[in-house]
Write a protein that binds this DNA or RNA. Structure first.
Lengths: 220, 220
DNA sequence: TTGCTTGATTCAAGCGCTTGCTTTAGTCTG
DNA sequence: CAGACTAAAGCAAGCGCTTGAATCAAGCAA
């Protein structure tokens, strides 16, 4: 901590450690842990190879450090935590938020790819049983839906509903290459994505409404 | 062809080439193309390292050969191509089929993981623009749904409906680690998976019915 | 049967290269 | 000068791939 700060003051404020972290996010996201080379990370960060050892110890610890900066990077759509938001508006806000990932390739998308990769192909370095980047999104949807379903306890049906809501968008992201081949016009441009979001909202409403109906029927 | 056959006859019918292919599926699925080592593949296939060069030329060609055996491995649920199958029965057959992937780890599951990995993290070796393993599943659902929706042409709404139907199951597979952490009891055992299939069918019916209603409304 | 040839296959060895990491000698700043 | 940091070189290990010799069954002539 204090060493790092004095370091920042020492050199031109560039903070080699910080550049190293940023480059690591990029390279790990592009190549995966195993295929990422420390030499390339250092080259992109414009530091010497010894810097990784100096600041982090080794490659695995650098990887862990990359995954230790996650929460502040995940910014959830605020509308869903406003209790006055209608069901449709909340769902639309949520899908607009997550579908923006599909097209753009900004700074944050790299870290998202990193989390997805760790999910599909665990490196074995991080402790297992971590829910990854899905947890905050899942938790927010659970919070948002409970009042709209008129329930105050989480059960497996609610969990499954939320996973389905996530799934109808996630398939478009994970399989975006296949989607573009099989159904051109779904996620090719901002315009088509806007249409697709409309479809997602309609699907989501159908799912939530069906679940609400099922619960009312089960009560009577 | 004839050389390969005489080879099979020559040795104990073990066919080193075949063992090599099988081992390659396993190792590529476990490690990914870049992290898989030809030495390990040969070790598992119980052949000499030179065998890859002898039979396939190099590592990349072995990888391509693995991806050239796909179609016969994808066995679709037959019920969906029977026009007498009801909507609910067809959907149930489909989800029972695909959800069997989530728990089991049989021979075929490795090749499925391989396709998923290639989708998320393309190796750059296969020609791009291939829809991967999703294509046959997608096509079958499109065929199955058209009569139940009363349409005879494929449009973008139908495509998106199918992707949503795929997505609500795929999220449980791709994020199965997170699902087990966030919602234990969804995909932990055959019993819970059976319950989850019930939920998937209910969700799918809600989606299809909503889409049919939308089309009827749009007509009038 | 016997010995020889041939072509297919396997084998151990090693080439050149990249990897993660370490070391040693330095430079710069306060 | 002391401590924070960097630079360059090099280590052992692993990588894909190649090589030339060894092995083996099949075909063939004497």
């Amino acid at each position: 901590m204090s060493e790092a700060r004095s370091n920042e003051l020492a050199n031109g404020g560039a903070a080699a450690r910080e550049r190293l972290l940023r480059a690591a996010v990029d390279v790990f996201a592009e190549k995966g842990y195993g295929q990422a080379s420390t030499r390339e990370i250092c080259r992109r960060a414009d530091v010497n190879v010894a810097a990784i050892h100096y600041y982090f110890g080794d490659k695995a610890s650098l990887y862990k450090a990359v995954f230790d900066i996650p929460e502040r990077l995940v910014q959830l759509p605020a509308a869903l935590d406003d209790s006055s938001t209608s069901l449709e508006d909340g769902l639309r806000a949520w899908y607009e938020h997550v579908m923006s990932f599909t097209l753009t390739a900004d700074d944050r998308s790299h870290i998202r790819l990193l989390f997805l990769r760790e999910q599909v192909q665990p490196s074995g370095i991080l402790e297992p049983n971590r829910a990854g980047i899905l947890r905050p999104y899942h938790a927010q949807l659970v919070r948002f839906l409970m009042p709209h379903l008129g329930i105050d306890a989480v059960d497996r049906e609610l969990h499954q509903l939320v996973f389905s809501l996530v799934g109808i968008a996630m398939v478009l992201y994970v399989e975006r290459a296949a989607v573009r081949v099989l159904a051109p016009g779904l996620i090719d441009s901002e315009t088509t994505i806007a249409q697709t979001v409309d479809g997602l909202v309609a699907h989501a409403l159908a799912l939530v409404n069906a679940e609400r109906d099922r619960r009312q029927q089960a009560q009577s």
